[in-house]
Design a protein around this nucleic acid. Structure first.
Ligand SMILES: [Zn+2]
Ligand SMILES: [Zn+2]
Ligand SMILES: [Zn+2]
Ligand SMILES: [Zn+2]
Lengths: 139, 139
DNA sequence: CCCAAATTGATATAAAATACCAGTATGGCT
DNA sequence: AGCCATACTGGTATTTTATATCAATTTGGG
């Protein structure tokens, strides 16, 4: 998912693709997600941006609402936001040290998606597969 | 996963299945997860337990470390813990109101598990499939 | 029974998320 | 272009959540 697709998605949902929001999007794409709101805010500030901390939080919430990112827990108390490329995201996470690696293979079937949509009356927009284990150095 | 299995797992990992910890496990099984640490603490206190708040937090962390529960994001700032029955957990979550429903069907293939284990040198112990969408009442 | 190590739980502290609000930018309208 | 209603911003204050500390207690091995 690139910047202009995200911009379009914001508009489609009735939100303005303001300069501040697009700066957050740029930072997200640059660092490829997997960061807390404060991490992202600091990176942006260090990079010369003067978008406020609250705007970073709110923009991430907004992006979560429209399916661009998803908050997950990554070892600390703070939510880590991952990018949902084409609606999905898959990673392995170490249960000890929280090291995380992403992978592309997807075993989520369209038929399961259909079945769940029918059964629970959800409009399905994406998914995340999170696999737990113990990494090499923690074994 | 039942109480005695969890007890065994604690022992196997070198932790003591103390009375306080088992009270937390009981509460988890009773309320079937999907709660924050403070939620669980309050339920326990209301039920007459005098296990301390810190012990609830620490026990949940411990259970996460050995793969019994997993923290996820559940709409508020606090981590919600889900039970990993037989190592896995699957649910649908509404991107707007965070309503969550669980389902049993699993499309995670053993061969993918093998492949990832080899590729990233992880010992794989479980997974969570989280599907995002918009629930009926939010559509 | 005795001791070292693990665990507990209260309190203190830090970190993270949210509420609030006055000011600013935006887009639709005339 | 100028006006207005509304969306958005960003600072600060507050609340909520998580972690660090530490003395007291419990536990299991010798
Ligand atoms: Zn690790
Ligand atoms: Zn997928
Ligand atoms: Zn909903
Ligand atoms: Zn599964």
């Amino acid at each position: 998912m690139n910047k202009s697709q995200i911009k379009t998605k914001l508009t489609q949902h009735g939100h303005r693709p303001t300069a501040s929001r697009l700066e957050v999007v740029d930072a997200l794409l640059t660092y490829h997600g997997h960061m807390t709101a404060d991490d992202l805010f600091e990176k942006m500030r260090d990079g010369g941006s003067n978008v406020g901390r609250m705007t970073v939080f709110r923009t991430l919430d907004l992006l979560a609402e429209i399916g661009v990112v998803r908050p997950t827990y990554g070892g600390s108390g703070a939510a880590h936001f991952v990018l949902l490329e084409d609606g999905h995201h898959h990673h392995l996470v170490c249960m000890r040290c929280s090291t995380t690696v992403e992978f592309a293979e997807c075993s989520f079937a369209d038929e399961l998606s259909q079945q769940l949509a029918n059964q629970f009356k959800f409009r399905i927009e994406g998914h995340m597969l999170e696999i737990y284990g113990v990494c090499e150095s923690c074994q």
